[in-house]
Design a protein around this nucleic acid. Structure first.
Length: 859
RNA sequence: GGUGAUGUAGCCCAAUUGGUAGAGGCGUCCGUCUCAGAAACGGAUCGGUGUGGGUUCGACUCCCUCCAUCACCA
């Protein structure tokens, strides 16, 4: 087997690493890691789907593996684990279809994923593998849920605190209700997308045109009692702490947008002739005088109470219709606005004028107060709505001349909404003020009048945390029942010692068609007698995000039966130094995870405020035709096939060579062949491919490398080291290709340059590197060999070529000593025949000498 | 519509603080080897950086306009 044969080399080394436990990570305190700095490199763990790995997975995993191997060789104590985010809908649907417990399907998929990942030679510590569906894992998911349940947010200290420390006002009529309403995990009635036919709640993404994405069944908005997490309490900290993170600006921006902080005012409008008030949030309180009507969301609690008898039928019909639309459809800009007049009027608090109150579905119940003051002259949607229904419009911000001209408007008759800042007009006390001044003035006035206050609003809503599913973590929650079997409203939590609460076995996993979820069918499991009382278990399960919120903590101490992880170990490893994964998790997972981490921090369980210090998103790999890989397009590449044909090292190398890690780039089979050829050249550089066994090539000699050989080597070490450290893997690989091309041409290849090269290659193509390392007479593994160092002196060339320009045009190239100083360089340039010709006897007005780089004469 | 990113050779991509536009790979062509092909090896090929302006001795790099593509949000 003299020629390069990954099918022989790779399984052999994978078996060696496995049996030798090469990548077992010792716990902190182990003598073998004394004095080493730590480095925690995390992958976004996969959902083990039935279709197996696609080539996008190994892209991120290879990047982290290169870093992990690199850092080990650089003397770091490296944590590099892998696991499975294995709860989720596909396994449940498989179970519904087959009647087979979802854990069986999940296990099969996990086994397949593990096999595939292992075939790529990643240096994970497999002893730390975690699986979110393992009761020993989700026991702690449930435990963390209970900590969150046991926490309230103190807005004074800006900190989550034990619920036992919550001050209860003496006038609170129902103390328990007061406490429960302050917990970070709480039950509340919220409008959800309910699909009767499927018997479950759906996310907004699962609803299309008021129908379920699967099955096309009708979906309605319906209030249901659900578990929520008070992530909104942490909104400010989730924004502020982004500043300290080494994340790309675009991901930070996405998180900021999602949280959607806006500063403005809350204003109270009195409903004419009634005791009711409508509160609205606005970012433009300066336009209050221009509020000519109000709009409530169709779900707003006051709608029924203020609607006049004449309008009742129309309003109710409209509410019905709106309940069938998703938020997305309702807020789409392009759609024609719809709405209905309630018959009621409100008083504009600024000028006392009566303005009509409408309902319209472009106002969402969940954002702000679920009601708006409409300022059609200065808000696009209000403008469209006013045009549609012939509502009055008053300009209260003076548009600039250019805008008036561009839009063909005159001040009292705008052709579109003027949304920019400008001087206030038609606004009484605000007239002539800038937008900034007017905002401040009117807000202060509202406070004095008791009609409003400054307010910060967030687009972020509390996190809907329950699902009507089987295949998820059960809540460790009991609902107390009275003698008649009805809920008393009292909630009891399971003791930590009673965890995990495992899922009951069911004969069928279909939804029940009621908001209870499939767990309600487990009659034996459902009812619990404790201390003479009867309880019914919570039958919803947690969303898939739950397990992935904290898995990076469990890797640190995966078998700990006493705690989710040992405090000392957490202190050692946290935070994660580098986290790599797909951009699809830029918002939800990363936000939820940061939220949980902050609660755990507040409660003293972790020692840092942010879990992931540096985050990198690998770009998507497209199909060979430049389109997104999809079965329907027939352009999906299966990593198994690539490994079979070219080997794992070639796959790893190619995925890193395609381009920058973060870029979107197309697959290229020719490109894989290219790196495969490179590996073949590296092999032949050192191995005699005519020999019967792996034998060193006769050109490999124990001779002193010459000056050029040393320069190439040290340049290669420098470039590969720097590029690897900054995740510029594609350029590191091209540098190694240059090295190989150079030495391939030589008949004498000094061992002293080949050996460091093999070490440089090792993080990228570990199998071939181990094989070559062994062939060079070393062993048993290079995984912990010190990373080669370089001498900057040796990187320098003896002589360099310096371009000479006259008026910015290239006129000559000088071959000069590398150490030349500026004066000598200038002199050399002036002495050059071509330069003399170009100057044509003129004296340069200016001479620019860039040290050792360039000379430019300006004449 | 908003936010962010990206436009360099036939293709994928380099060019770290503005300083000779080109490292690497793919493709194509020509050689060597071969009966021939494949493989391997050697050599060559091609553009002036999406567009239009500006700053500068000098711009892929900085600033402005527009265009295109992608991602996220609406």
């Amino acid at each position: 087997m003299p020629s390069y044969n990954p099918a022989d080399v790779e399984p052999r080394w994978q078996a060696f690493w496995e049996t030798s436990a090469t990548f077992r990570t010792p716990d902190p305190g182990d003598p073998s890691v004394a004095g080493k700095p730590k480095y925690y490199i995390l992958d976004m763990f996969p959902y083990p789907s039935g279709s197996g790995l696609h080539v996008g997975h190994p892209e991120g995993y290879t990047a982290t593996d290169i870093l992990a191997r690199f850092q080990r060789m650089r003397g770091f104590h490296v944590l590099h684990p892998m696991g499975w985010d294995a709860f989720g809908l596909p396994a449940e649907q498989h179970a519904i279809a087959t009647g087979e417990h979802p854990s069986i399907n999940t296990k099969n998929n996990v086994d397949n994923f593990r096999r595939q990942i292992k075939s790529l030679g990643f240096s994970y510590d497999w002893q730390r593998e975690v699986d979110t569906t393992d009761p020993d894992y989700f026991r702690w998911t449930q435990w963390i849920f209970l900590q969150i349940y046991d926490t309230w947010y103190d807005p004074e200290l800006k900190k989550g605190r034990p619920i036992s420390e919550l001050p209860i006002p003496p006038d609170a009529t129902d103390k328990q209700a007061y406490i429960d309403s302050h917990r970070l995990a709480y039950l509340a009635e919220v409008p959800v997308n309910w699909c009767e036919a499927l018997g479950t709640v759906l996310s907004n993404e699962e609803v299309i045109d008021g129908k379920s994405e699967r099955g096309n069944h009708p979906v309605v908005r319906r209030p249901l009692k659900q578990w929520l997490m008070r992530i909104t309490a942490y909104a400010e900290r989730l924004i502020d702490d982004l500043a300290s993170l080494d994340w790309s600006e675009s991901i930070k921006q996405m998180q900021r947008n999602w949280i959607g902080k806006s500063v403005g005012a809350e204003v109270k409008f009195q409903v004419s002739g009634s005791k009711f008030q409508v509160e609205v949030f606005t970012t433009r309180p300066d336009t209050l005088f221009g509020a000519t009507y109000m709009v409530l969301s169709p779900e707003h609690a006051l709608v029924a109470q203020i609607t006049t008898p004449e309008q009742k039928t129309a309003v109710e019909a409209y509410q019905q219709q709106a309940s069938r639309k998703s938020d997305f459809e309702r807020t789409e800009m392009a759609k024609t606005k719809t709405g209905v007049f309630t018959g009621a009027f409100a008083l504009n608090p600024a000028n006392g004028k009566e303005i009509p109150i409408w309902i319209a579905d472009y106002v969402l119940a969940g954002y702000g107060t679920g009601a708006i003051m409409a300022v059609p002259a200065h808000d696009e949607r209000d403008f469209e709505f006013a045009k549609q229904f012939g509502l009055p419009m008053v300009t209260v911000v003076t548009p600039n001349e250019k805008w008036l001209k561009d839009t063909g408007s005159v001040i009292d008759d705008l052709n579109e909404a003027y949304t920019d800042d400008g001087l206030a007009m038609n606004s009484g006390m605000l007239d002539g003020m800038t937008t900034e001044e007017a905002k401040r003035k009117i807000t202060a006035w509202l406070v004095v009048e008791g009609k409003g206050e400054a307010k910060v609003n967030y687009k972020l809503r509390d996190w809907l945390f329950s699902r009507q599913r089987y295949w998820g973590e059960p809540f460790p929650i009991l609902h107390e029942l009275d003698a008649a079997g009805n809920r008393t409203g009292v909630i009891r939590t399971l003791e930590a010692t009673d965890l995990p609460l495992t899922l009951p076995t069911l004969a069928d996993f279909k939804p029940t068609g009621s908001p209870d979820g499939p767990l309600a069918k487990a009659t034996d499991w459902l009812t619990v007698e404790l201390d003479g009382k009867t309880y019914r278990r919570e039958t919803n399960t947690m969303p898939q995000w739950a397990g992935s919120c904290w898995y990076y903590l469990r890797y640190i101490d995966p078998q700990n039966p006493q705690a989710f992880a040992d405090a000392g170990k957490l202190n050692h490893w946290l935070p994660v130094d580098l986290y790599i994964g797909g951009a699809e998790h830029a918002v939800l997972h990363l936000l939820y995870s940061r939220f949980w981490h902050k609660v755990l921090f507040d409660r003293g369980y972790v020692n840092c405020v942010e879990p992931f210090h540096k985050l990198v998103n690998q770009g998507m790999i497209l199909g060979e035709n430049g389109e997104k890989m999809a079965k329907s397009r027939g352009n999906v590449i299966n990593p198994d096939d690539v490994v079979k044909e070219y080997g794992a090292d070639a796959l790893r190398l190619f995925e890193m060579f395609m381009g920058p890690l973060e870029a979107v780039k197309p697959w290229s089979t020719k490109g894989v062949e290219g790196v495969y050829r490179f590996l073949g050249r590296v092999w032949r550089l050192m191995i005699d491919d005519t020999a019967a066994t792996v034998t060193l090539n006769a050109t490999v000699k124990d001779v002193l490398p010459d000056r050029d050989a040393l320069r190439i080597l040290h340049h290669t070490i420098q470039k590969v080291t720097d590029d690897t450290a900054r995740l510029s893997f594609n350029t590191a690989i091209s540098t190694m290709m240059e090295f190989c091309n150079y030495f391939t041409k030589l008949e004498v290849r000094p061992r002293a340059v080949l050996e460091p090269f093999v070490l440089l290659l090792a993080p990228y193509a570990p199998h071939i590197a181990e094989e070559l390392w062994a062939a060079l007479g070393h062993g048993p593994t290079l995984a912990y060999e010190p990373w080669p160092g370089y001498d900057p002196e040796l990187v320098k060339a003896d002589s360099i070529e310096v371009p000479v320009q006259v008026n910015g045009k290239l006129r000559a190239k000088l071959r000069v000593p590398a150490e030349i100083d500026d004066a000598a360089l200038k002199a050399a340039a002036l002495a050059d025949a071509k330069v003399i010709e170009a100057l044509a006897g003129k004296t340069p007005k200016k001479v620019i000498v860039v040290p050792r780089k360039l000379v430019n004469f300006v004449v």
